[in-house]
Design a protein around this nucleic acid. Structure first.
Lengths: 213, 213
DNA sequence: GTCTATAGGTTGATAGAC
DNA sequence: GTCTATCAACCTATAGAC
């Protein structure tokens, strides 16, 4: 059955990509884990590149419309409160990815991080080409919340925020181990978000920016 | 001459590692760029793993003692000001890496970022094993600056801060491209730090934490 | 210390039988 | 749609001549 095979490949691939990265995961590993034939990846997806995009597309296609919908209704307040509102509206769509797949949210963020740092140009082009509009909407909302902060400064802060998130996920196994050993805490993705969003909101809202000469 | 060859290898390797990552850079690329024989890497460093560690060690061995020295004299104030003081004392040693090599700071942080996200366990183990004490000192300083914030909450924030930094560096090429295209800015590492530190300080110092149930 | 040559393994992709 | 077999290219590492 084609449908089953295709789905098995996607699931195996996303697990391994999230864990090891794209470049370090071979098609042989993927097909072995999916328990399908090696040649079936190229039959169903054409190439490894296409498979990588298909894995991410599955999540983006669920999340981005939800974000669009959530933000369409929003007129953010000015200041820290507005930033909180924007972030709050991202939280739902993000956590809903757990419906796509068990641990889907965590998987997605890790895939995103790996895609960013393994500077495979084709992935960034694919994302920005397909979903750039939603990204722009998020930025516009933050601009409404923080009208006094220049666009380029906001661009920086948004990227720092993404970095906090992605890094936490990318090293989440290490974080989990440390937290358990040193602080007797068992962590899941919702915990990370609960700690992360105040940190990020605080950092984004700061008014102490200055363009150094 | 052995010394020259070894140095040429290190320089070529760190450039390519920083640009492409460790896994995606082959010894053939390195030796071609260094204009030395392929076999010389294994002769001088034993293995690719050792070469990776040697590249990072060159920077850590310069920076970590400087951080130790800078922090030894410091008794941070309480509050946001204390956090700023701690970060300020990290800035110098970090920027001094430009003395190791032109663009040394940028190179180093990119190497660090790639090392963290390409979860090559041996690298994290090497770093924490060799320089973990300095990391602990930094944490202790932040605890002095923010005595009201529980240790586990500070642990979270420190990781988010590291995440902002490492991710920004690991994806700095992408950031540069975007900044140039969308905001007509040419960025260097000092710019990134100038934007990053206030963001991080703001996020770490926030007093709006709450342990959700 | 430097070189050539090569071993021994991996990779992504494909041709062609079924 | 699935399989086997294989290609051509790449990889790290090493043996051994100079």
């Amino acid at each position: 059955m084609s449908k089953q095979t295709k789905a098995r490949i996607i699931e195996a691939a996303e697990y391994l990509f999230a864990l090891q990265g794209y470049g370090q995961t071979s098609m042989r590993e993927i097909t072995a884990r999916a328990d399908v034939n090696l040649a079936s990846v190229n039959y169903h997806f054409g190439s490894k590149k296409n498979l990588i995009q298909a894995v991410l597309k599955r999540y983006f296609d669920v999340m981005m419309p939800q974000i669009d919908e959530a933000l369409a209704k929003l007129v953010p307040s000015v200041g820290r409160k507005g930033v909180d509102q924007v972030l709050q509206n991202l939280k739902g769509p993000l956590l809903n990815l757990n419906a796509v797949q068990p641990d889907g949210t965590e998987m997605f963020v890790q895939l995103l991080g790996k895609g960013y740092t393994e500077s495979q140009g084709h992935l960034r082009r694919f994302i920005m080409g397909s979903y750039g509009e939603t990204v722009q909407t998020i930025l516009a909302m933050l601009r409404t919340a923080l009208p006094a902060i220049p666009a380029d400064e906001l661009f920086w802060r948004l990227h720092f925020a993404i970095g906090s998130f992605v890094f936490s996920m990318a090293s989440s196994q290490a974080l989990k181990d440390i937290a358990k050993a040193d602080y007797q805490q068992d962590i899941d993705i919702a915990d990370v978000i609960e700690h992360l969003f105040p940190f990020v909101a605080q950092g984004i809202s700061g008014d102490g920016y200055q363009n150094e000469g």
